[in-house]
């Protein structure tokens, strides 16, 4: 009996996840007007990013090797990745410090599933899927403007790389959230990470020197969306960036798992 409990059973986890999703839908539908308003907010900020690109390209034809519609594709791709990250993980990461503060983590630690799994997947942000869809629409329009017809292989590659990008966002954010075990008030740090998203949607060609090094090899923001979009837009010179993105995703995830375990060892319940 004990042996069966400890073995990894994907079907059971799928069932747990289904229940969590259902719970999220119910929760969102309680405040319908608010749900719609948040979607409007996200769309507005996305439009704002596109406006910025529009203004930049009033005054130039290219940033490095990137043309206007390629950058639109990049902003769209970056939004797509960011919104999917938001849909699955963002609320859960920001809630972690709250779980520590009010002691609810004790309860989650007792559940007979992997704690990181429940903590990471507890809530689903449904509105973010709508934003992700709008990002996809912008990307389709941009590929049309570029007269691009990506092959099935390119689209597949793009999606797999998006997955790696989301994994990076998630790992770094989760690692930062785990710091809340020590400081409890980690909102400043979480807010800070939000600032870094801004870099992910800028063309990598613009950067040089230390800045490029840091945001490629330490906090790989310049890989997260640039590499997938380069695959889609036929802008990949060599397979190196792809390998780098996968490598960094694995490194980030490993470090975040290590940080999470270290934090848990440090955890003393708030209520006891």
């Amino acid at each position: 009996m004990n042996e069966r409990k400890s073995s990894f059973r994907p079907l059971r986890y799928l069932g747990v996840y289904g229940a969590l999703c259902k719970n999220s839908v119910t929760r969102e539908m309680i405040f319908k007007a608010n749900f719609v308003l948040w979607i409007i907010v996200e769309l507005l900020w996305f439009a704002l990013q596109l406006c910025f690109i529009g203004v930049l390209y009033l005054h130039t034809n290219h940033i490095g090797t990137w043309t206007k519609w390629q950058v639109v594709l990049l902003v769209g791709g970056s939004q797509f990745i960011q919104q999917l990250f938001q849909a699955f993980f963002l609320t859960n990461c920001t809630n972690l410090s709250e779980l520590v503060r009010n002691g609810k983590l004790d309860f989650l630690l007792l559940l007979p599933v992997n704690t990181r799994f429940v903590v990471s997947f507890r809530q689903l942000d449904l509105g973010a899927f709508v934003s992700a869809a709008s990002a996809l629409a912008v990307m389709v329009y941009a590929t049309h403007q570029l007269h691009l017809l990506p092959s099935a292989m390119q689209v597949f590659g793009f999606l797999v790389l998006c997955f790696a990008g989301i994994a990076i966002h998630y790992s770094l954010m989760f690692l930062l959230a785990a710091i809340s075990f020590w400081t409890v008030r980690a909102q400043g740090i979480v807010w800070g990470y939000y600032n870094l998203f801004n870099i992910a949607r800028l063309p990598d060609d613009a950067f040089r020197g230390l800045f490029k090094l840091v945001f490629t090899f330490a906090i790989p923001m310049l890989l997260v969306s640039n590499v997938p979009v380069r695959v889609l837009a036929d802008k990949l010179g060599s397979p190196k960036p792809v390998l780098l993105l996968f490598g960094m995703a694995i490194v980030c995830f490993t470090i975040s798992e290590w940080g999470w375990r270290a934090s848990l060892r440090h955890y003393t319940s708030a209520s006891s």
């Binding site: 130039t60 600032n195 870094l196 800028l202 060609d205 613009a206 800045f211």
Partner: peptide, 16 residues
């Protein structure tokens, strides 16, 4: 953290 996107925008302008 707020300085990071600012530096990024300055890089973009310099490239332009």
């Amino acid at each position: 953290f707020g300085l990071v996107p600012l530096i990024a925008i300055l890089y973009v302008w310099r490239t332009i």
